[in-house]
Amino acid sequence: MSTAIEREILWTGIGGQGVQLAAKVLALAATREGREVMSLGTYGGTMRGGNTDATVVVADGPIQSAPMVSRAWAAIVVHPRFFEPVAPKLRAGGIVVVDEDLLEGTLPACAGARLPLAATRIAREAEAPKAAALVLLGAFAQATGLVGLDALEAGLEESLPSYRRQTLESNRRALQAGAAAVPGVSHPAWRKEAA
């Protein structure tokens, strides 16, 4: 069987938070770094206020997973409201990045190390108040080394249509502030976990 390392990242949040954008930036960045990438957004008819999730799979060889995964290595919880069905999918040895500013009580139990981050506050301080999802992405990338910050910034630029260019700088600040909020690689993506 394949010896490729395959990293499944589940995103969950509420429509309007930029979950789909942040997932796309990650997928674009990984593509730029020559990885195999698969990405699927799932959201209902409600654009704002409803559940919006995304799955991004990044691998260093051919991807074996289907577009929707039963098990995942990481979760990025942009809002915890719809996290409950995501929690049981997480594997031990992974990482769960969560915006602690938006926690309503405690997050349901799940495998994987918690990386809580005051993403909403950090985004506000970076004068990018709508970009907490990108703060979480910057922190996740820094903690895992899954993709580099340069690739994320290039992916961000690629993701923005011409009529959204004015948000490029603030979004970039959000990515950088997220990366600066964690000390370094604590959960390396490209090292095989012990069986």
Binding site: A27, A30, E36, V37, M38, S39, L40, I63, A66, P67
Partner: peptide, 9 residues
Amino acid sequence: YLIAHTAEA
């Protein structure tokens, strides 16, 4: 649906 909407490199 998944062929249509899944993004791949």
